[in-house]
Amino acid sequence: MPVRRGHVAPQNTFLDTIIRKFEGQSRKFIIANARVENCAVIYCNDGFCELCGYSRAEVMQRPCTCDFLHGPRTQRRAAAQIAQALLGAEERKVEIAFYRKDGSCFLCLVDVVPVKNEDGAVIMFILNFEVVMEKDMVGSPAHDTNHRGPPTSWLAPGRAKTFRLKLPALLALTARESSVRSGGAGGAGAPGAVVVDVDLTPAAPSSESLALDEVTAMDNHVAGLGPAEERRALVGPGSPPRSAPGQLPSPRAHSLNPDASGSSCSLARTRSRESCASVRRASSADDIEAMRAGVLPPPPRHASTGAMHPLRSGLLNSTSDSDLVRYRTISKIPQITLNFVDLKGDPFLASPTSDREIIAPKIKERTHNVTEKVTQVLSLGADVLPEYKLQAPRIHRWTILHYSPFKAVWDWLILLLVIYTAVFTPYSAAFLLKETEEGPPATECGYACQPLAVVDLIVDIMFIVDILINFRTTYVNANEEVVSHPGRIAVHYFKGWFLIDMVAAIPFDLLI
């Protein structure tokens, strides 16, 4: 008679799926529990143990900040960024110097990925580790590398530091407007667009060049630039800015003055950032001319202004700041037409079709709590990747769950009947059967004279019903998954307890 339990259901295979997918890609990662103190490590794979030199037993239950890997060259700011990422709910990448158990130093890129439950609360953290440099290539500990984003994938490793954006290309926007319009339909740009040429040739750093990471940081200074100062900065030398009595002219307006920039070969870094931020506020060169004239017309309804409409929906549905990093990277690809469009465009503009998908598509409701890094690593669709929660398995109709209350009560009843059979069957065979043979035949009273025979008949009927119930009862397979398919249940029961239950259900007393 089957006594099969499996009270692990309803099970959740999400954690096993993450481990299996990460292991298949030869990654070095740990999984931490966000619900406990210090976000203790609950799993670390073999790749991480080989990377740091510690065994799994030495890593388990330690804080996922990996303070046991810190050393003299470990930056405090990087460690603080990892700790801050564990307090938030967004994906974050941090470069930090770690030390192995043998004392060797290596520069590592740590990717902190939160995993949320159905309520939107962070319950786990996945920390992925990628070695960037070994100890002989690690720089000085005073050099802070965590304020910069990861290198873009479309640049060669040897040319990542030679990417320079020439400031004269930004200063000569109005001069290039006529050349853009003359391109017409034969050019790649839309009317009114501004073409910015980027020099990728390796050259020595000069005062006129600005690194790509500095251009990325310009967006942080746009908020500090007032509207009046932006307007004066875009007017140009024809209309000098008016300053109040006793007030000095704005240095932001002076930063885009061609006369002032041409007199000296070098520009201050602050002026460069502010000038680029001011130019980015204009949607095209037409807006710059309109600002000089004193009238700013409404933005025209053409394809170039609607190019950012799908980007707005993608940004609203993005799951991490990696989408913004990807957008900034692609927006700086050289030799393309940049349409400086305000994100607050007309909502009635139709979304044009684009061959290049900048932001990841909208994630469906079932995966809105899973970050983009987890979705990318697992390579699963929205119909396959579940949320991290207890999910009731989908069972067929008329199927009994093996952990249901009805099955528990039924098993206790069958257990009592088995005990009765084990006690009274030998007793009936030894004593009652002998008395029946010696006594007179009682054929007239039937079952009324033999109450134990009636009980034995009921017990046999219950055993037959138990066999039928076992054909529709779920079970737990070797992978700790609840199986509810009727065919698989029948095959599993035939290979197991079916023969024993059938022999126990045969009414031998009635056959004798």
Rank of each mutant, 00 (worst) to 15 (best):
R5L: 15
G6C: 11
H7F: 08
H7N: 03
V8D: 15
V8T: 15
A9S: 11
F14S: 07
R20M: 07
Q25C: 14
Q25W: 13
S26D: 15
I30Y: 01
R35M: 11
E37A: 14
V41T: 08
Y43F: 13
Y43Q: 01
Y43E: 01
C44G: 01
D46Y: 05
G47Y: 06
C49K: 03
L51E: 07
L51P: 01
L51G: 01
C52R: 01
G53W: 01
S55Q: 08
S55C: 09
A57E: 08
R62V: 07
C64M: 05
C64V: 09
T65V: 13
L69I: 01
L69H: 01
H70V: 07
R76H: 15
R77Q: 15
A80S: 13
A85F: 01
L86V: 08
L86Y: 01
L87R: 14
A89G: 14
E90D: 13
F98T: 01
F98W: 03
R100P: 01
D102T: 05
S104G: 13
F106C: 01
V113Y: 11
V115H: 13
N117T: 10
G120H: 13
G120W: 04
V122H: 06
V122Q: 05
I123H: 09
M124I: 06
N128C: 09
F129E: 01
E130Q: 15
V131E: 15
E134Y: 06
M137I: 07
H147D: 05
P151M: 10
T152L: 06
A156C: 06
P157G: 09
R159F: 13
R159L: 14
F163Y: 07
K166W: 07
L170I: 11
L170R: 11
T174A: 14
A175L: 01
S178D: 06
V180Y: 15
R181Y: 06
S182M: 07
A185M: 14
A188R: 10
G192V: 03
V195Q: 01
D197T: 01
V198G: 01
D199Q: 05
T201K: 15
A203Y: 05
A203D: 05
P205Q: 12
P205R: 05
S207V: 10
S209R: 04
A211P: 06
D213E: 06
D213P: 07
D213H: 15
E214Q: 06
T216R: 12
N220P: 13
G224Y: 14
L225N: 12
P227Q: 06
G236C: 04
G238L: 14
S243L: 09
P245S: 15
G246M: 06
P249Q: 09
S250D: 09
R252G: 14
R252I: 03
H254N: 07
L256K: 14
S263M: 04
S264R: 12
C265S: 14
S266R: 07
S272D: 06
R273V: 12
E274N: 04
S275Y: 08
A277H: 12
V279K: 15
R281S: 07
S284F: 07
D286R: 05
I288N: 14
V295K: 11
V295W: 13
V295I: 14
V295Q: 15
P300T: 06
P300C: 07
P300V: 15
A303P: 07
A303T: 14
S304F: 08
H309Q: 08
P310N: 07
G314I: 05
L315G: 12
N317M: 12
S322P: 14
S322C: 07
D323V: 04
D323N: 13
L324P: 12
S331T: 14
S331G: 08
Q335K: 14
I336D: 09
I336T: 15
L338R: 14
L338Y: 15
N339V: 01
F340H: 14
V341Q: 05
D342H: 05
L343F: 13
T353Q: 13
S354V: 12
R356D: 07
P361C: 07
I363A: 09
I363E: 12
I363P: 13
R366P: 07
T367I: 14
H368V: 10
V377N: 07
L378Y: 03
L378F: 03
L385T: 11
P386R: 01
P386L: 01
